[in-house]
């Protein structure tokens, strides 16, 4: 067990190191850098002015030196300075994390709230009209682009309430968060709920066919008790996995949803930073996402092993 854990952690470190190299190199392949952006933004194409800015920001140094500086800084918790705002990158990124985290958390909450029971119902009522309806709904959840769903929600909100939720950082508290993030969270959570519903359904079906369920039924346990107490508990394992993985993959959905609803979270910030070639922001944000994904994958594996005795620690 101990050796396996160490091996896993080393592999994680290796993956993150590889990611840092990949993103660093890829960003430098993007045409145009921050010096281009800053001069082009004010309509200048003068090479001298550009060189001055490039020197000031240190992007004229050899790429290895730049990489070393970044990683060296990271080791001390120093993420460097954002090019555009000229503030410490940490101060730019940190306040945006809770916004996205809240949104993702609410989205997952909605996803589980709807996905899990509907999945169970769909499995229990297999091949009925209700099952077909629920399957179509869940499949449409995987088919609707979340930005389009967001637009429809906005249009409906305008139609019915005559207004739209505009994010305001000065409003704090639980209900303020719900009123500002509720709709976006449902929009982005729809996909996840569809996925959870499908998976719950299929793993429920699997479990319902098992002998011990039949036994429980034949012993006269009530159908509800069987379905929810015995079957669901056993069907939950793969569902927990997918919830974990979905939490990481929500980041993709957050990017478009934060754009549509104008929410100043980290996900939208990433796209803006890419467009501005704000390397310190992009690099660190990408690493943040990678750390989240890798950690969740690790935790999911651990949970799997803890919950399922059939899986051995040998790789």
């Amino acid at each position: 067990m101990g050796a396996y854990l160490i091996r896993r952690l080393l592999l994680m470190a290796l993956t993150l190191f590889g990611m840092s190299v990949l993103i660093f190199v890829m960003l430098r392949l993007v045409p145009g850098d921050i010096a281009d952006i800053l001069t082009n933004a004010s309509g200048i194409s003068d090479a001298k002015e550009k060189a001055k800015i490039a020197h000031e920001l240190g992007i004229d140094q050899p790429i290895l030196v730049q990489y070393g500086k970044w990683i060296g800084g990271l080791a001390h918790g120093d993420l460097g300075y954002a090019y555009v705002s000229e503030q410490p990158a940490l101060d730019e990124i940190l306040p945006r994390i809770p916004i996205s985290a809240k949104l993702a958390g609410m989205a997952l909450f909605f996803a589980v709230l709807f996905g899990l029971p509907l999945g169970v119902i769909s499995a229990v009522r297999q091949n009925t009209r209700l099952d077909y309806l629920l399957r179509v709904v869940s499949l449409s959840g995987l088919s609707l682009p979340s930005f389009w769903l967001g637009l429809l929600v906005l249009m409906a909100s305008v139609q019915w309430f005559g207004m739209i939720p505009i994010y305001d950082a000065d409003r704090t508290g639980f209900w303020a968060s719900v009123s500002m993030l509720g709709l976006p969270a449902m929009t982005v959570g729809f996909r996840s709920s569809a996925l959870i519903m499908r998976l719950t359904r299929s793993s429920m079906l699997e479990v319902l066919r098992q002998d011990y369920i039949r036994t429980a039924r034949s012993k006269g346990a009530s159908i509800v008790a069987v379905n929810f107490k015995h079957a669901l508990r056993n069907a939950l394992l793969p569902v927990v996995t997918v919830i974990g993985i979905e939490a990481a993959f929500l980041v993709g959905g957050l990017i478009v949803t934060e754009t549509v609803f104008n929410i100043p979270g980290v996900a939208r910030f990433l796209v803006e930073a890419i467009l501005w070639r704000d390397y310190p922001i992009v690099q660190n944000l990408v690493m943040l996402i990678a750390v989240v994904v890798v950690t969740i994958n690790f935790l999911v594996d651990m949970a799997y092993m803890a919950l399922d005795p059939r899986i051995k620690f040998a790789d």
């Binding site: 592999l11 990611m19 993103i23 959905g253 992009v282 990408v286």
Partner: peptide, 18 residues
């Protein structure tokens, strides 16, 4: 492993921008 450390859309966005 490295390529899968980023969600599909995030990876595609970085690639498309490059």
């Amino acid at each position: 492993d490295i390529m899968q450390a980023l969600p599909l859309l995030v990876m595609a966005i970085v690639m498309a921008a490059s």
